[in-house]
């Protein structure tokens, strides 16, 4: 009996040692030298894998940051907080990560926009709507109200309001920019949160047509550009804001006939 016990112990011990030796050898041969910093950086990232940084996911971003190929403040979701943590891990100065927000540059909801004679009854998706007929509204530049942006938002930071336009919950929004990417008409643009002056219209039609398709369209009168002293420039029938030169005080917001140019700061 006792010999059996000893044999059992010896056999199992021997087998264990054999496998342990084999694994130790394999470990030496196959060891992957991964920078331990990558794991640490990965841990402080939000883990949403949204791709807002332009990398294939949070892990890929971590690898790039550690290798110096991506900026420390490159994660728009984590913002300053994450940038600070990464900076601590890597022992470098952090840059200031500017919070980006999507802006819906169209005010032509169901009330304002003029409808076509026919009604759109196809699939409710902006992509389908733009391909098939352009939707109910006459305006060929504005929001079609299919809600692709709302559906694409991974953080539930958007909703469609009663007027059929998307609204952004700025507190929840992380600025990943997915909504701007899915918008087939590029009505949604990403801007730093500090920017407050926007032309909330994308209509490039000539003034007469613009007036006919939407009550709040920019009619391209150019008054904002003339008064802005270079801060705003007319391109075709639409004013384009040069945020570097813009002086908010010069813009005659109340002179805009359709109210297409707004200062969000004053609205709220």
């Amino acid at each position: 009996m006792e010999t059996g016990l000893i044999i059992a112990i010896a056999t199992m011990g021997g087998l264990g040692l054999l496998f342990a030796g084999g694994l130790a050898f394999a470990d030496k041969k196959l060891r992957v030298t991964e920078n331990p910093l990558i794991g640490k950086v990965f841990e402080v990232l939000p883990g949403a894998n949204c791709g807002g940084c332009g990398k294939a996911g949070c892990y890929d971003f971590a690898v790039n940051v550690v290798e110096g190929k991506a900026k420390i403040n490159g994660c728009p979701v984590g913002g300053n907080e994450t940038a600070e943590k990464i900076a601590q891990i890597l022992g470098v100065e952090k840059g200031v990560s500017e919070k980006m927000l999507p802006r819906v540059l169209c005010r032509g909801g169901n009330k304002e926009a003029v409808k076509k004679m026919t009604e759109y009854l196809g699939p409710v998706s902006c992509e389908a709507i733009t391909i098939i007929s352009g939707g109910d509204k006459l305006c060929a530049y504005g929001c079609v109200g299919g809600g692709d942006c709302v559906n694409a938002c991974p953080f539930d930071a958007m909703y469609m309001n009663d007027n059929g336009l998307p609204e952004i919950l700025e507190d929840i929004c992380t600025g990943c920019g997915i909504c701007a990417k899915v918008c087939p008409r590029n009505v949604i643009e990403m801007h730093p949160a500090t920017r407050t002056v926007f032309v909330l219209c994308k209509n490039q039609d000539e003034p007469k047509t613009a007036k006919e398709v939407c009550s709040v369209a920019c009619i391209g009168c150019g008054i904002c550009a003339r008064k802005s002293e270079g801060g705003i420039e007319m391109r075709g029938y639409l004013p384009v804001i040069n945020y570097d030169k813009l002086d908010e005080g010069l813009i005659p917001f109340d002179k805009c006939k359709t109210g297409a140019i707004v200062n969000l700061k004053k609205l709220s």
Binding site: M12, G16, F19, G22, L23, A26, L30, R31
Partner: peptide, 19 residues
């Protein structure tokens, strides 16, 4: 014994795939 074999082999496979 079988569990020992399996556990070691999986370790090995894990190393190989990681590499």
């Amino acid at each position: 014994a079988f569990i020992l074999v399996i556990a070691s082999l999986v370790q090995l496979v894990e190393m190989v795939i990681k590499k």
